[in-house]
């Protein structure tokens, strides 16, 4: 029982970073109804830029964090301009395929920056490890959870209570109606990319600082985790992304404990499979899609 609870706690803590990755996918999907496949690769390029500074100039971990964030945001803006702005909204497949190509391009750029297989990534603790009853809370994971919770809270406030957040939700619902209302839809979409890149950059940094290493597979890994968590929670739903991320983390933690490390990823794929069979819209997706369908019928 204690193991079960401990695993669940560990899963929630690591799952919080999956939640941030899923938020990145889900917000872009909400605004554009398209999937940005280059998302993981933009985070990777940002993290590689930070690591490059760390490797060559031994800069402070905060400089690495800042560089990771800034470069991820720049990469995100680059992807928006190249794959999403330039290609019309009704050509969803074309922009998805082009974002896949940009994924390759960004990864190649990162690998040219640092050609070795593995690099050390500076660790980052705010909280030290502590025990609460029989349970152990590891410092780096607690830090991750706190960072993720702060990000989700800030995002919630931004989306609900600011002019930009409302514009973003309006564009998600109907770009055409938003344009009639004088909302600069192109600018909102660019800002949405910058915003999710910032969220992704925080997630990437938190994950890498916990692992204390970075490899060229990070982009692929982040894409998988983010996409699976988004699909579990329901595409286009922000609470769904959080829920999906936490669920994925918990399932992986249990699989790793009870079945062994080699089943950790497999369990995630099995869970996704089961979800797609039993509840294809994801945990909260159906509700969203149902509400949207109603909205389209009535308005």
């Amino acid at each position: 029982m204690i193991d079960f609870v401990q695993n669940t706690v560990d899963g929630i803590m690591f799952g919080s970073s999956y939640a941030l990755l899923a938020i990145g996918f889900t917000i872009v999907f909400g605004v554009l109804r398209r999937i940005n496949l280059a998302f993981g690769a933009s985070i990777m390029l940002g993290a590689y830029a930070g690591t490059w500074l760390h490797v060559h100039y031994q800069v402070n971990v905060l400089v690495v964090a800042l560089t990771t964030l800034v470069c991820t945001v720049l990469a995100g803006i680059y992807v928006e301009r190249l794959c999403f702005r330039a290609i019309r909204r009704d050509a969803a497949l074309a922009s998805m395929v082009s974002s896949f190509v940009i994924w390759m391009q960004l990864e190649e750029a990162a690998v040219h920056l640092l050609p070795e297989r593995t690099y050390a990534f500076p660790s980052f603790f705010v909280a030290g490890s502590f025990e609460l009853g029989p349970f152990l809370f590891r410092g780096e994971q607690t830090t991750m959870l706190v960072l993720a919770a702060l990000m989700v809270g800030a995002l919630h406030l931004l989306l609900r209570h600011t002019r930009f957040g409302l514009a973003l939700r309006a564009v998600s619902e109907s770009p055409r109606a938003a344009a009639y209302m004088g909302i600069d839809t192109a600018w909102v979409m660019l800002c949405a990319f910058a915003l999710v890149s910032l969220v992704g950059g925080v997630a990437g940094f938190a994950i890498l600082a916990t692992d204390e290493q970075i490899t060229p597979f990070f982009g692929l890994w982040a894409t998988f985790k983010g996409l699976i968590a988004m699909m579990l929670g329901g595409m286009g739903s922000l609470p769904g992304a959080v829920l999906g991320g936490l669920l994925l983390g918990v399932i992986e933690a249990h699989a790793q404990w009870y079945l062994g490390n080699e089943y950790k990823d497999l369990s995630a794929y099995l869970l996704l499979f089961a979800m797609l069979v039993l509840r294809p819209g994801g945990i909260l997706g159906q509700r969203i899609h149902g509400r949207e369908a109603l909205a389209f019928r009535r308005v």
Binding site: R169, R176, A177, Y180, R291, L294, A295, F296, V299
Partner: peptide, 12 residues
């Protein structure tokens, strides 16, 4: 412009 068909933001 108030567009034809209203184009409200239905879920908002």
């Amino acid at each position: 412009q108030v567009p034809e068909g209203r184009l409200l933001f239905g879920t908002l």
